[in-house]
Write a protein that binds this DNA or RNA. Structure first.
Length: 573
DNA sequence: GCCGTTTTCGGCCCGACTGTTTTCAGTCG
């Protein structure tokens, strides 16, 4: 039983929270937070790294002290420093830190003066009007806290990027037309193409901010104006999504775009590089003393610190700066690289459009092939295919293919992986197909070992080409299965099997970190839409976004190949 | 707590906005 990276990360974050409330050295706290973030997004399992005898202190931001703490968590499951801190400060205080308007100083004061430990305590104090009596607090602060406590959604969720696209587009269209707007970009984690977003950062280049700001805060979709200043305003949309607007002069656009794209960790690293080169970098430009030496474009910012342009998806301070320095940045996969789709459904099971319609849509996208992968019989709910019905579909596909020129439907199936790792259809039936996609749709809660072995057992069958949506997660709905991903990917590599990056916006399964792990372990990825209708073939772009965040190149993705090349690649037997 | 072609000690990104303030602390990104 080994501890997960996310658990280590959570303990470090909790420790940082409590130390911050205690008023500890902010740089020490930052070191813990950096480490928490590093571990959480590391494409390797920390426990496995330790088991392999790797030096954690080689990781950026991890020194001797943190390496020791992490080792302690891996071997004991606990962190003494955290437990000690939890005796000094109530651990529940970290919940209070999440309230907008309350930072460590105020939480500390609330705790000291009012002996408040929990959100429930705080709620009572607010009702009794005690909060506003504290020094530095007032009516506004109390209202803000009250509103948070009343509207708090315990499972407060980040919003899918695909959803944010829809929510923001009316606002964006309006601002684009505003007089004096020279450029506009959705920056922040949206531009970095993160799978989910906490808020949205809009960046506008305009000489005069008044009119843009007015159009922004007065837009129909705005429910509440949180702040309104000369260069910066914030609103909440009716959907609950927070949107921040920054207006800068065109001269500063590149510097501002870089700054507001983030990530924070990337920005700090770039600015630090700037300092070393005698430069000051802020959202208004790059300066040597008082002289502006760049900032109109992002490329100028990177150039000022001696680096080539770094794609937004890579800006997480996860090695991209070092890679840029050495000229080793990956050439990230792009939509035009994709030649086909290897996962789709028809009305034979739970799809909406027939073979002909799907084929037509795929051809219009310029695809050379589309794999038809309906469910197998175990999926009774969607009337999964048995041998007879699959054979019929195969004949239908053959007939259609005879009429195509430069395009083909691939005969395939999304075959269920049963609890013991065997497949839902017999080998002789699978032998009739061009490729086999295998997936788990039941028993998501087996133990880590059993689940991992189940998937490896499925890949033991040489007919299995691709493991679909490998972790089974549904963002905000279902947690990923408990899996030893590193072991799984190694097993895939040894067997010549591929893993899918399912591009459904609610799945995006694999994660960016898992993509990176796959690349590092030499496992190629199938970038597939899992389309249940012709329009869902468009989901490919979400998969592309995720793959780019996972540092994948066209070479890492199997469906960037022609069918002829792909055929060679997928041959296992 | 981390880190080092200025340093093993002394730095650690930087600016905007709000609220409660008479000049700024706290929070946020």
């Amino acid at each position: 039983m080994s501890i997960q990276n996310i658990e280590i990360s959570a303990m470090l974050t909790q420790l940082a929270d409590l130390l911050e409330i205690e008023g500890e050295n902010p740089f020490r706290i930052r070191a813990y937070r950096n480490a928490a973030r590093l571990v959480e997004t590391l494409p390797r399992n920390v426990a496995a790294m330790i088991a392999a005898g790797e030096e954690l202190s080689k990781l950026p931001g991890i020194g001797e002290a943190l390496a020791t703490k992490i080792k302690e968590m891996v071997s004991t499951g606990h962190l003494q420093a955290l437990e000690k801190e939890e005796h000094r400060v109530p651990p529940t205080l970290s919940d209070l830190l999440k309230i907008p308007g309350l930072g460590p100083k105020r939480v500390h004061l609330i705790y000291e003066q009012l002996n408040i430990h929990t959100l429930a305590d705080l709620s009572k104090a607010v009702d009794a009007g005690k909060l506003r009596a504290l020094p530095g607090f007032g009516e506004k602060t109390e209202t803000m806290v009250r509103q948070y406590l009343q509207n708090r959604n315990p499972g407060a969720q980040r919003v899918l990027r695909a959803t944010v696209e829809q929510l923001v587009s009316p606002l964006l269209d309006r601002l684009k037309k505003a007089p004096g707007v020279k450029q506009i970009t959705v920056a922040g984690s949206y531009r970095r193409q993160m799978e989910t977003l906490g808020d949205v950062d809009l960046l506008v280049a305009a000489e005069d901010s008044d009119e843009v700001t007015r159009l922004f805060v007065e837009h129909d979709d705005v429910a509440k104006v949180l702040a309104r200043g000369k260069t910066k305003s914030s609103v909440t949309l009716r959907s609950g999504l927070q949107v921040d607007l920054r207006v800068v002069p065109e001269l500063s656009y590149g510097a501002a775009l870089h700054y507001f794209t983030g990530s924070k960790a990337h920005n700090i690293a770039i600015r630090t590089r700037g300092v070393q080169a005698g430069l000051k970098i802020n959202e208004y430009g790059v300066f040597r003393g008082t002289e502006r030496v760049g900032g109109r474009t992002e490329a100028e910012v990177f150039k000022a610190v001696g680096l080539p342009f770094i794609e937004p998806e890579l800006r997480e301070n996860q090695g991209e700066i070092e890679a840029a320095e050495k000229g080793l940045l990956p050439r990230l996969v792009n939509l035009p690289d994709i030649r086909g789709d290897l996962h789709s459904h028809t009305p034979a099971t739970d799809g909406r459009n027939d073979l002909q319609t799907l084929a037509q849509a795929a051809r219009e996208k310029g695809f050379e092939y589309l794999a038809i992968t309906d469910h197998s019989k175990r999926m009774t709910l969607v009337h999964g295919l048995n041998a007879t019905r699959l054979a019929r579909q195969v004949r239908d596909i053959d007939k259609l293919n005879a009429a195509f020129n430069g395009f083909r439907l691939l005969k395939s199936i999304e075959v269920d992986i049963l609890e013991d790792g065997s497949l839902d259809l017999s080998d002789d039936i699978l032998d009739e197909l061009d490729l086999v996609v295998a997936a788990i749709h039941s028993r998501f809660t087996l133990t880590r070992d059993k689940q991992t072995e189940r998937l490896i057992r499925a890949m033991d069958n040489p007919r299995v080409t691709i493991l679909a949506h490998p972790t089974g997660r549904l963002i905000n709905e279902r947690k990923p299965m408990d899996l030893d991903l590193e072991r799984l990917l190694k097993a895939a590599q040894e067997r010549g099997c591929f893993v899918e990056l399912d591009s459904q916006p609610t799945r995006l399964d694999l994660t960016d970190a898992a993509c990176r792990m796959a690349h590092d372990l030499g496992v190629k990825v199938s970038l597939s839409t899992d389309a249940h209708s012709a329009v869902e073939l468009d989901f490919m772009r979400h998969g592309i976004a995720q793959a780019r965040r996972g540092w994948l190149t066209a070479a890492d993705v199997i469906n960037t190949r022609t069918w002829k090349d792909l055929q060679r690649l997928i041959k296992r037997k």
